[in-house]
Design a protein around this nucleic acid. Sequence first.
DNA 1: TCTGGGGTCCTAGGACCC
DNA 2: TCTGGGGTCCTAGGACCC
Length: 419
Amino acid sequence: MYALVDCNNFYVSCERVFRPDLNGKAVVVLSNNDGCAIARSNEAKKLGIPMGANAFEYEALFKKHHVHVFSANFALYGDMSQRVMTLLSELSQEIEVYSIDEAFLKISGLPPSNLAKHFSELQKRVYKCTGIPISIGIAPTKALAKISNKIAKKFPKETNNIYIIDDEIKRVKALKWTKIGDVWGIGNANERLLQTLGVKNAFDFTQLNDQFVKNHLTIVGLRLKQDLQGIPTLKLEDVKDKKNIATTRSFEGNITELSALEERISTFAVSCAEKLRKQNNCCTTMMVFIHTNGFRNDLPQYSKNILIKLPFASNSAIELSRFALEGLRKIFKTGFHYKKAGVIVLDLIPSEQVQFKFFDNANPRHIPLMKALDKINANFGQQKLRLASQSTGKIWRMKQEHLSPNYTTKLSDIILINV
DNA sequence: TCTGGGGTCCTAGGACCC
DNA sequence: TCTGGGGTCCTAGGACCC
């Protein structure tokens, strides 16, 4: 059996751990730049605030219903996630951390009659140790565990946020209850396709012919179908190093000058280099892209990316920044209002497997230099030490008007009790 | 005025090899 | 009328996830 553990309204729950006064109240967390809603409490959902709601469109509604609004605080959410995942790892043999707020557990050696009790205890322990409420769906396959989890969340009173699919009757009932577009792995495009074929729910989908599914939804769709039929096809996956790493941002305003864009691109490249060093990788390819604001019909549009093959593998902030800027200068055009840009590093290889070249090699002196850079920034704050190309003036910040303190990762933000 | 930021996997088709 | 039969690698683009 598989269990899918999912933290309820995760980002909102993280904020509530340190603001218990917000329990039972409408809370939303906004994306970077305070752009749109990326997490909502149940109370906020009831007010009709959808996922991705534009903050500026819903401002009046937020005000009217006294919705508590937070800017995304990923330092806090990442740390809370680690606490939850660490607990789950301690309490189960096999675990796949699927996202910041979800993990699959593989259950073996537990009598079926004990499942409910076991997971109820796990749920209580996670809540006691972290303050985060979780929902658990249990089923013979991963895709069914996803559906089971959805049921557990949808019917908290009946299920206490734990649901088990352990026989055919429950499986068929759950599949018929699940709209086809809500199935894990069925996105917009396939939902539309399946709708036209009269496939309304997950059960209808499992009744389709295998070859037909493979032809239209590829091998991915077929695996999903089998998993939904109760044939374990999707396996627990190991957490691997990332294959691509990106740092991209939308800007608060528009950028028209190359020099201003250079500062951002340099910063993004430096950030990618830091993430690379964290997973002990070098990259051999980079991509730089710039976009105008696609929502503005009144302005001319331009969007371009460029792939840069590096002459040697590197994770040096200095080198990556230099290559990224060379790329930017090739695609930059004057006369446009740029709204978004980013740097992506690809073709990652372990640092110790970097091939030496005859002529063009990375500067070996950068390795100790980057070590020093990382150490200083770890001790004295992110971006304390920067490249000159990253702008020497103020650090560019995104819009974060409702940011909560870093309760768990910054000593000066630690919560005070009984002052 | 404003409308996020990450990721993964698969396929088709082209270029190339012997 | 017929005009081989294998392969690999790479890329762009699409679909999906949170």
